[in-house]
């Protein structure tokens, strides 16, 4: 139940050494239930864009609309996965996932089973009682993903949720995410460094330039859902990936 709109959004960080322009004139819309990925070189402002969308960082220029209303404060209805897993080392894995519920003053009992199910989906069910200090980077990221999803948010903002994973786990989770999205059709924005992942999951891929980040292209991926693993070998898929990849060859 949510559409997003970016209207000439710009961001300039003011730090001691002077202003840093991270984003410039970013405009695009995301329809309700659409899956959009953002790819672009490191430092082009992708994380910044997500944080502004969630109302966590103020924008410097332009407007961001959620369901046609300007973002002025924190958008707590969203599920945000940060680039770092940001698990709390003093909480067990399960309690880290349930922090989302606790913080929102929802009833923990109502969500514990869902939390465990999510942990199972990402292969972390046997670590429910472990502490983050005992987990690898990829394991932490999987737990963080569960924390992002556990309250069933209406919008997903995912900042490289698979960045620290090995290729095989990553493939599996990408498939799972695709399946889950297809079942629920939530509005989703994914930041990723993997073009093939972006093409595989998305309705559209936003291609951004280096800093200051601007939009180079928005590519519609006309491959019907559901998409199985085999899609990745289709000429159409390969064509999308190579054509987007061309933006990053210098």
């Amino acid at each position: 139940m949510a559409s997003l709109a970016f209207r000439s959004v710009g961001k300039t960080y003011r730090i001691q050494s002077g202003p840093v322009q991270a984003l410039q004139d970013v405009s695009f819309d995301i329809a309700d239930g659409e899956f959009v990925s953002i790819v672009g070189p490191s430092g082009c402002g992708k994380s910044t864009l997500l944080k502004m969308c969630a109302g966590l960082v103020p924008r410097s220029d332009g407007d961001i609309l959620v369901d046609d209303r300007s973002v002025t404060g924190v958008q707590t209805q969203m599920g945000v996965a940060f680039q770092d897993s940001l698990l709390l080392e003093w909480r067990s894995v399960l309690r880290n996932v349930l922090l989302q519920i606790e913080s929102r003053k929802l009833r923990i009992e109502d969500y514990e089973q869902r939390a465990r199910d999510l942990l199972e989906t990402v292969g972390m069910e046997s670590f429910a009682d472990a502490y983050p200090g005992q987990l690898s980077g990829g394991m932490k990221q999987r737990v963080a993903l569960c924390r992002t999803l556990v309250h069933d948010p209406s919008v997903l903002l995912l900042d490289e949720p698979f960045g620290a994973l090995d290729a095989m786990t990553r493939d599996q989770l990408v498939l799972d995410l695709g399946k889950m999205w297809l079942e629920t059709r939530k509005t989703a924005v994914l930041v990723t460094h993997s073009i093939s992942e972006a093409v595989f999951l998305s309705d559209r891929v936003v291609v951004m330039s280096g800093r200051p980040g601007t939009i180079l292209d928005i590519v519609s991926i006309d491959i019907p859902h559901p998409r199985g693993i085999a899609v990745r070998e289709s000429p159409q898929f390969v064509e999308y990936v190579t054509s987007i990849g061309r933006y990053f060859q210098s």
Binding site: V74, T76, V80, F82, L86, L88, E102, S103
Partner: peptide, 27 residues
């Protein structure tokens, strides 16, 4: 306390005293 951790708390609806209790002070 890392800025992102505070933002994580904010995104879950934690502010003020609850943010201190659940995230900042333990950290």
């Amino acid at each position: 306390v890392p800025r992102d951790l505070v933002m994580l708390g904010n995104s879950m609806g934690l502010r003020g005293a609850r943010l201190f209790r659940k995230i900042m002070i333990p950290y």
